[in-house]
Amino acid sequence: MKTDDLIDALARDPAPPPAPPAPRRMAFALGAGLLLGVVLLVTFFGMRPDIGAAQMPVMMKAMFSALAASVAVPVLLQLAKPGRPLGWRIAAVGGFVLLSAGIVGVALIGGDPTERFQLWMAGAFPWCVAIIPLLAAPTALLLTRLLRDLAPTDLRASGAALGAVSGGIGAMVYAMYCPVDSVAWVVTWYSVAIALCAVLGAFAGARLLRW
């Protein structure tokens, strides 16, 4: 029986050398992706001119984005190896979404009622929805390479988690350019941009993450 021959052939194959742990490799990919995103930003968009004076809002926006990425990282890591349930990790993502909705609510209630709509929509086109996925691309490529090396078996969910993590990193970079400091505006549109990255990732993942 041929399958038995295959088993013999496989059994003669020596054990693989242990690979570095996945979390460490992912941390490296995220760091490199962040740096490449900053290079993209500086090359094509530049920093916001008043970045020195606006350190506080820039930091807040970057921290919100980093939080978004860091609730998606455990999901992505868990999905990278077969047969592991998500458990609390998915609840953490849900908690983050609720927290974001809460922040937008508080920011709007605290604002002047006549300016509420202005605070939320800022009367400007939310360019971040288009630019954040762009700045997320280097991270997404590095994470795709890493994940293909591991063994994700739910490609759609893995792709979505990969997109969300990359989107969070892209948003961290975008915070250095983003000229709008309204909390309600930032939380709303950054979340939309990161969710868009997750949707793109879910579609691309089914193809790109195959192994």
Partner: peptide
């Protein structure tokens, strides 16, 4: 065989095999 280093020993091996 080729992805056996993706097995996480804190979970059941049957779940790992079934997922693959």
């Amino acid at each position: 065989h080729t992805r056996r280093d993706s097995y996480d020993a804190s979970y059941p091996v049957t779940a790992w095999i079934y997922a693959i």
